[in-house]
Design a protein around this nucleic acid. Structure first.
Lengths: 381, 381
DNA sequence: TCCCAAATCTGAAACGTTACAGGTAGGCTA
DNA sequence: TAGCCTACCTGTAACGTTTCAGATTTGGGA
């Protein structure tokens, strides 16, 4: 008979005592050492190839499955000694709850879903977001699943899918619109979520946002400080996305305050292909009323902008200044040097993950709203 | 009594007939229209707030749950008429199998896990990989979960977790090593996987790889064609990663063939911070034995390289030429123009996803190995 | 007319977990 | 001593699915 290796004699005895009740062994349907009827008990190694379940622990501890389940989650009706013992066994045999079992019984998935637009990739945004979220989730039982959708498709589609199939406990999504149907839908259905970006629909929900108004304002200010008077902006996607408005608000305010004028940049935005941005920029910079200061809200677009500007025979820093937002540090090393403000998307990911988790835990949405501010790195000053 | 809206009289009658057996209604535990005993049947709308299950369909069709389950997966022992009927009902009420139920019963998770190194982000790699994979999975019942690990941690850790908890049906991972313990472990455990990158351990497994040897070879060739004689390379991560060797093989071969010489680039690689790359590059380019041609295998590193080169007072295209791999199209617009070869990571993601799925389906590993070739975009020629 | 096989269909059990509704033992009060 | 309360533990049922081992029906051959 194998000795009760690490659990001490008491557990062994208790188990034997339980075993003496007739039929228990077969009722528990446990593996036995071949030939005789003595089951493998008391050993602390993960003995069987199969994954341990509550039943395994219950068998080893000589307890009921229910008791084990409760002991593992520190329920008040279980004695402290029992809890300690159960938790020790669980740890030693490497017990991990079966997620399918939990999910089937409770409906809890332990999944957070990141819903992403697969078309509009702003340099480094997706990856940093993913890593930021993972960083937080890795210390929890939650897993991250990614649910992308094409910009041509209905953004509601993945959301509906998740809700209808109950495939996540919480959702993180970006590119919010002022009146965002996803926010309305999820709120109505009581599904916890957090958005990267704000809305303007009177619904309080968790969000994290970069202060694009401040970014645009500061960007224009720094252009004005360099004596630029004719300011243009390559803005966030379509006007339907909320931060487009923030950008324009900050932009207009700074331009007005500085008594400068604006030059419209039509036909292109940060979702446009870099080739088109370059070409259109060349046109714009070749016109007589060309801007002498440009604000850009995407790092990769900025590189294309520069290409267009130079194609028009103009010089950054001389004929025109450029300020850009960046979400990696690549632009820091880009020549000609441009003025950059950093958006820490990884941090945003962390904030969003924390927000959904706390929302799931029942925290009021208003406590889960945060803003982060542009961080200027002007390498030229 | 509600009419059998869309299913025709026969189903209605059949249902009624079934219902007439006493107790069936309560046995099925179905909701009934309040007051009387007539259950809601035959209606094709998703009537109840609750999600339909097999039981719902069974009830509506007047069949057993088992039959419905089988009918939905086209089992041979079910009559064609029944199949059609069941599938129609399922479609109309929007039935979707409960993943937890399936997973608990069969052990199949319908999840593919992408295991990622969260530190070494090569510009655009992660996001494009994610999108490529999703593109393929979106047409299947599979979901994508992302499991990142820090480069400081044991790369085996996430793999072990997935295997031990059975949390995915297949795994996609990158940064393979010639003798990769993950590949060995997964092969031994019979878990389907596909790697981005090859191994050299005599184990046949599905992979997709970019031909880095060809990339390095062609890069050096194009430098030689420009009259460059002293060639250097900023190589892939540590020598422990397989593609490092491929790069060097292609590099050495081309250098030898051209009778050129090499300049070692020590202390930095594509995993190093861009700031260090820039500074180190400035040192290297200030030395007397500086290279006049450089190969770089990461787009973001290339930008830092250029910064270092220019800091040393040298001119790209004049004093030195630079070739870089890129996995987005950003470098296309970068000035000074450098020679670029494209690696289509999104395509790699698609290939990898298809490979795991086919591996799960039992296809031989040797049929699931593919290579993609560098695609030159030299804007200067 | 009867019987057998093929064609369809069926309920029960099981996967691992948690919720529910108890059960038992021991100590305290009356 | 009985009765009751508390502390601790228990078995059963259920979540939705698939598998197993039949059950029923149908049709054809003898």
């Amino acid at each position: 008979m194998p000795p009760a290796k690490k659990f001490g004699l008491q557990y062994f005895c208790k188990t034997i005592q339980i075993l003496s009740k007739e039929g228990l062994n077969s009722r528990l349907n446990m593996k036995t050492t071949e030939g005789d009827q003595k089951p493998v008990i008391g050993t602390a190694e993960p003995v069987e190839g199969e994954r341990p379940t509550l039943k395994t622990i219950a068998f080893m501890a000589g307890l009921g499955v229910t008791t084990v389940s409760r002991a593992l989650k520190d329920a008040p009706e279980i004695g402290q000694a029992t809890k300690n013992r159960v938790q020790l066994i669980a740890k030693q045999i490497g017990y991990r709850p079966n997620r399918a079992g939990v999910r089937l019984r409770t409906g809890k998935t332990n999944v957070i879903s990141l819903v992403l637009n697969a078309q509009s990739e702003i340099m480094g945004l997706t990856s940093n977001m993913v890593y930021g979220i993972s960083e937080v989730l890795s210390e929890t039982p939650y897993h991250l699943t990614v649910t992308p959708y094409s910009v041509k498709n209905d953004p509601m589609q993945p959301i509906r899918y998740i809700v209808e199939t109950g495939s996540a406990d919480g959702i993180i999504m970006s590119r919010t619109e002022p009146n965002d149907p996803r926010v309305r839908y999820l709120t109505e259905h009581g599904i916890p979520f957090a958005t990267h970006g704000r809305t303007e629909m009177g619904i309080e929900h968790p969000f994290h946002d970069f202060d694009n108004e401040a970014f645009a304002y500061l960007s224009v200010k720094s252009l004005l400080a360099r004596g630029r008077r004719r300011i243009a902006m390559l803005a966030g996607p379509s006007p339907s996305v909320t931060y487009y408005r923030h950008l324009h608000r900050g932009f207009s305010r700074a331009v007005e305050e500085g008594g400068a004028s604006t030059v419209a940049v039509s036909d292109i935005d940060v979702d446009t292909s870099l080739g088109r941005i370059r070409n259109r920029m060349e046109e714009i910079m070749s016109a007589s009323n060309r801007p002498d200061g440009i604000v850009c809200c995407s790092g990769s677009a900025a590189i294309a902008l520069v290409a267009g500007i130079e194609a028009a025979g103009l010089k950054i820093g001389g004929d025109v200044d450029l300020v850009s937002k960046q979400s990696t540090d690549v632009l820091q090393w880009f020549r000609p040097q441009i003025i950059v403000f950093n958006e820490d998307v990884r941090h945003a990911g962390r904030e969003l993950a924390r927000a959904v988790l706390r929302r799931i835990a029942g925290v009021d949405a208003r406590e889960l709203q945060s803003l982060s501010y542009p961080d200027e790195h002007d390498l030229r000053s």
